[in-house]
Amino acid sequence: MSDGDEVEAARHAAKKAKIKAARDKMMATKVGEKGLVIVHTGPGKGKSSSGFGMILRAIAHGMPCAVVQFIKGAWDTGERRLLEATFPRLCQFHAMGEGFTWETQDRARDVAAASRGWEKAKALIRDPSIRMVLLDEINIALRYDYLDIDAVVAFLRDEKPEMTHVVLTGRNAKPELIELADLVTEMTLVKHPFRAGIRAQPGVEF
């Protein structure tokens, strides 16, 4: 190694040591734990996929969890197949929806399905043995006022057990939910194959 390379290596090491010291100092103050309210929203793809990724992570840690699907209940999805076939003791799966709103074309039916889904969700969240609950596409039900946003926010604020994580997915998350949440991620649409005439495909979309 040349003298110049040694000087550069020393500078790099000193810079990284400074960053590590600052990081360690910051991390020393982060000692709290709590059950989080997590929102995945936005027009981009990946909201449900990210939620199911968190469910699989919880399963890997031996944490009992549950899924309530509010919209895509009629779909035969890869996530549902995997969770029901492989992890039935660690993850409950409840498909409560009857398809997208443009498929049912029946508001009263959609409201009833959403209400059943929310009642199931509340029971699962209240269960102290369950550590994470994914409410997949609940934001769609809230967007169309199939559920009362104030009632949902009040329940999550006042009744959710302290250490239970709740993940809520779907575009157009209500401002009240975003305000309550501990973690909010917005998926941004940059490019999507649907616009080029490519339909939803197994393993990618469902």
Rank of each mutant, 00 (worst) to 15 (best):
E119T: 12
V39I: 15
K120T: 15
L82G: 01
H40M: 13
L36S: 12
E79C: 05
E137L: 05
P128V: 10
I198Q: 10
T29W: 12
R11K: 13
A113Y: 00
K16M: 13
I125G: 10
Q92K: 12
I38V: 15
F93S: 00
G203Y: 03
T188K: 15
D158V: 08
G53L: 08
T104H: 02
T29L: 14
R171L: 03
I178D: 02
G51E: 03
D136G: 02
A13H: 11
G197F: 10
S50V: 03
H61W: 07
K120I: 14
H61A: 05
L56M: 13
E6I: 15
E8S: 13
C91F: 04
I71P: 07
M26P: 01
A58V: 02
L82V: 10
M1I: 11
Q105W: 01
I125F: 11
G117D: 09
S49F: 00
V190L: 14
A196C: 03
V167G: 07
G35M: 11
A21S: 08
A28Y: 08
P43D: 15
H40C: 09
E205K: 00
G35Q: 10
D136L: 01
K72I: 09
D158K: 08
Q105M: 13
A114N: 04
G117Y: 08
I130P: 07
K191W: 09
A196Y: 02
G203M: 03
F206R: 07
I38E: 06
Q92E: 13
E179I: 02
R57L: 07
K120S: 09
A114E: 01
G51M: 07
M54Q: 11
P202I: 05
R57T: 04
R131W: 03
L36K: 14
A108V: 04
P64E: 04
G197C: 06
G78W: 07
A21P: 03
S49W: 01
R116N: 14
V190F: 12
F93I: 05
A14Y: 02
R171Y: 08
A141L: 04
T77S: 15
I38W: 00
G42T: 01
I71K: 01
G73C: 10
R126G: 08
I178H: 02
I198E: 09
K20L: 11
T164E: 04
A108W: 02
T185P: 00
H40F: 15
I125A: 09
A9P: 00
G4I: 11
T164F: 07
K72W: 06
M132Y: 05
E119I: 04
M132H: 03
T29S: 15
S49D: 04
T104C: 06
R80V: 12
K174E: 10
P193G: 06
A154S: 15
R107I: 06
